[in-house]
């Protein structure tokens, strides 16, 4: 019963978010009229007002709501998968340099119009993770510490690259880049939804398949090998889909901080450490979390607040309180 309720949360939230927004041109009476026309309770000519409702809800809010949900789900699933993979609750998509790589790629595409935004960002995200992985790779194995160190270095390189792109870009385009790096969802469109939905759903399904293996891997390399899993192979099988969904999300929404780090913790506080529960919960709760925050972000002010600022301002303190209260759910090692 509780499970059904939990998994139906997104449906309610998505529908609710459609009817919330700052647009003065959409009056609630017109929305009611529009719904009645849509479900066929009343028939007749569409008025200008209901046509406007039609356009705003179906072409502005619906793609934004769907995109927001997908991005939230992707960052949360990716973050929790990486935390299990690296046996480290402090890891997030940012730590491997993949966010920085994707951000550099996107900035490059924004500066040089010939490059396709989504693809460039995706490719550089993958390059960044590949770099971290191969820098960290020893003779036979990839140690956690060296991987995180490599991630920090790679992040630094791509962040410097991003700064350089900003430095040489003309002021008009610079503004677009700066806005994009802050993370925002108000540029959502059907085009962005369709370009990200396939990689995100594909990667999410892949991670769901790997969810129990994450448990085995997070016990340690020797412990995984002893029971018949090749840790190096399994790590790649987790790393690739986790990277895919995180870069796909950065490509459409920029860097949205805190989600990939904080939401997995919040989920773990409820579900416990079993990734069989965490991964599906991450899809639902991660999407719902970002959707709620974005709905607030676009409702409270008359102008658009970049979502990345909001997630940090709300998620940060919330996370600190939870962390203090939870008596640390994992061992210090």
């Amino acid at each position: 019963m509780g499970t059904i309720l939990f998994y139906s949360i997104p449906v309610f939230l998505i529908v609710l978010s459609l009817f919330v927004g700052p647009s003065d041109v959409v009056r609630s009476a017109d929305i009611v009229l529009w719904i009645q026309q849509k479900v066929g309770v009343i028939s007749g000519e569409q008025s200008d007002a209901t046509l406007m409702v039609d356009a705003i809800i179906l072409n502005v809010r619906l793609p934004r709501v769907l995109l927001t949900f997908l991005v939230g789900s992707a960052l949360t699933m990716s973050g929790s998968a990486l935390q299990a993979l690296f046996k480290n609750p402090l890891v997030s998509p940012d730590i491997l340099g993949l966010s920085a790589g994707a951000a550099f790629g996107a900035a490059l595409a924004l500066a040089v119009h010939a490059l396709p935004l989504q693809l460039t960002s995706f490719v550089f995200g993958l390059i960044a993770v590949g770099m971290s992985y191969f820098i960290a790779r020893g003779k036979r194995s990839v140690s956690t510490v060296s991987l995180i160190l490599a991630g920090i270095i790679v992040s630094g390189i791509f962040t410097a690259g991003l700064t350089f792109v900003q430095f040489v870009t003309d002021p008009f385009r610079l503004q677009t880049i700066v806005h994009w790096t802050m993370g925002n969802l108000h540029t959502a469109s059907w085009e962005k939804v369709t370009s990200s939905v396939i990689p995100i759903l594909f990667g999410a399904a892949w991670l769901l398949f790997m969810r129990w293996r994450m448990n085995v891997i997070s016990l340690g390399d020797e412990e995984a090998k002893a029971v018949g899993l090749n840790p190096e192979k399994e790590k790649v099988m987790i790393l690739v889909p986790a990277t895919l969904i995180a870069t796909a999300s950065v490509a459409v929404a920029g860097i949205i901080a805190m989600v990939g780090l904080a939401v997995p913790h919040m989920i773990r506080m409820v579900t416990g450490p079993d990734n069989r529960k965490i991964q599906p919960a991450a899809f639902v709760a991660g999407g719902s979390f970002l959707l709620v925050i974005d709905t607030i972000a676009r409702t409270v002010a008359t102008f658009e607040i970049p979502i990345g600022l909001f997630t940090t301002l709300i998620g940060g303190p919330f996370f600190i309180v939870l962390l203090k209260k939870s008596r640390m759910l994992y061992r210090e090692n």
Partner: peptide, 26 residues
């Protein structure tokens, strides 16, 4: 020696012994 980071239950730890028999989920 063995000290994992995440507080898995005893049942979940023992279940990982089945890894060579499991396709996706035990």
């Amino acid at each position: 020696f063995h000290a994992p980071v995440f507080p898995f239950t005893v049942e979940d730890v023992v279940l990982t012994g089945r890894a060579s028999f499991v396709f996706a989920v035990p």
